[in-house]
Amino acid sequence: MSIINRLASALTITLAICTSAHAQEALVIDGETISPAATLAAAKAEGHLVHYGAFPADNIRPIHEAFTADTGVRVDYIRLSSSPLFQRIVSEHQAGALAADFIDLTDMLLIADLVKRGILDVPHKVPSFDAIDATLKEPEGRWYTYINSTTVIAVNTAVIPEADWPTGYKDVLDPKYDGQLGITILDGGSVLAQYGLMRDLSPTYWADLKARNPRLYEGVSPLTTDLARGDLGVAVGPIGELVLAQMRAGAPVRIIFAKEGVPSFGITGGVAAGARNPNAATLFLDWVTSKRGGDAIAKAYAYGANPASAAPVAEGVEYPSRAALIVYGAADWQSKFQPYRDEFLALFGK
């Protein structure tokens, strides 16, 4: 073999070794090991994942984009609210045609049902597992509450003078807001912790709230629309992201985080059993529960599961520390959701 051929052969072997070594590197960013090498390599080979979720598409988009930028793995997103999404997941699973690789919902009772049905039954302890609060994870890692959004009070500043803005949920009961108050009904999981906090403040809080004759809304979009155009002065519900969008558009609205605490509602998910792209889904789960992923979630105006990740950031809004969050875990859902819902709907005549 000529010297040139030997050099060429050596160079080929060296390049192959370097390429193999590079392919086997773990996902490490800013000193944080986010996912092991084998998962990263297999996920890159799959190339994409299908995510069925309940978080609004506009809010999840920057999270998906950050994940793709870090990993090269694309995300296809199918978004529905929790109840119809649950029905779609179950129907596809029964037909042996579940397209989702990663699934999340806002309703912990439906999550528990998916686990029982064997649909959300892929135990996986992410690298940050030990750091994540127990209320935000299933003990074996079948699911994680990886996004924690906030329920808030909001005001129309053209209707309510700043001196009269409520600072907490007790203030909302002031008769001066009569005819100007709108609330969402307790018919879904996004307001469970909020109405639970109200009940903790006073056993008569719900009755006192009803006495103020608030306008009842079954959806957050009509509620925030009426707030922005001045039909309401005060709104209460899981409306932070929508009000922020209105603020950016120039509407005279403002978010208030209650002084008694900040109720949270979670987006809870995990890897689907029988996923076609299980490694890509596992990589996504590792990433969204990391500090890196949590920092991306903060830019979508929510809190990540990783306690080292940043608090949300939005122009004109100062988010509270993570310690102010009131989070309902699986046990709270099991014991409180149905009786609270039934009592609330009966009281308000819905």
Rank of each mutant, 00 (worst) to 15 (best):
I132P: 02
M1R: 06
G179H: 01
R212G: 04
I147Y: 08
P161G: 04
L345I: 15
I256R: 04
R322P: 15
L136P: 11
I326Y: 12
W333S: 14
A45T: 14
F348L: 02
I60Y: 13
A16N: 03
L27H: 06
L201N: 10
D70A: 14
A66Y: 00
R276W: 04
A193R: 11
K170A: 10
S20T: 12
S290F: 09
G196K: 08
R79D: 04
A38F: 11
I111S: 12
S91L: 10
I89L: 11
D174M: 08
G270V: 09
S81Y: 02
D164Y: 07
T184D: 00
V90T: 13
T282M: 09
V50Y: 02
G269E: 03
V236E: 09
V73K: 06
D174Q: 02
S81A: 10
V243Y: 05
P320H: 07
L232V: 14
G47W: 01
L227N: 05
R74A: 13
K291E: 12
A280T: 06
P252C: 09
S83I: 07
T150K: 00
V73Y: 02
A112H: 07
A235P: 03
D171G: 01
P56H: 08
P84D: 09
D295F: 09
I78V: 12
A300R: 01
V236M: 08
P222Y: 11
A42P: 07
A99T: 13
G230T: 01
L40E: 13
N156Y: 07
G219I: 02
T14G: 07
L345R: 14
D30I: 01
T268N: 11
P127S: 00
P175I: 03
G188C: 01
V236W: 05
G304L: 12
F337T: 13
A43Y: 02
P263R: 06
R341F: 00
K299E: 14
Y195M: 09
K299V: 11
P238R: 03
V236C: 05
P127A: 07
P312F: 12
I297T: 06
A131N: 14
P222G: 11
K44A: 09
D231W: 03
N5P: 01
Y303V: 10
A37F: 01
F348N: 05
V75L: 01
G274R: 08
A37M: 02
A273E: 05
L216R: 06
R229T: 12
N213E: 14
G96Q: 03
D76R: 12
F337W: 11
N148Y: 01
D178Y: 03
G47H: 04
M1A: 09
V253E: 08
I326K: 15
A131W: 08
V159M: 12
T150M: 06
L173P: 00
Y301L: 00
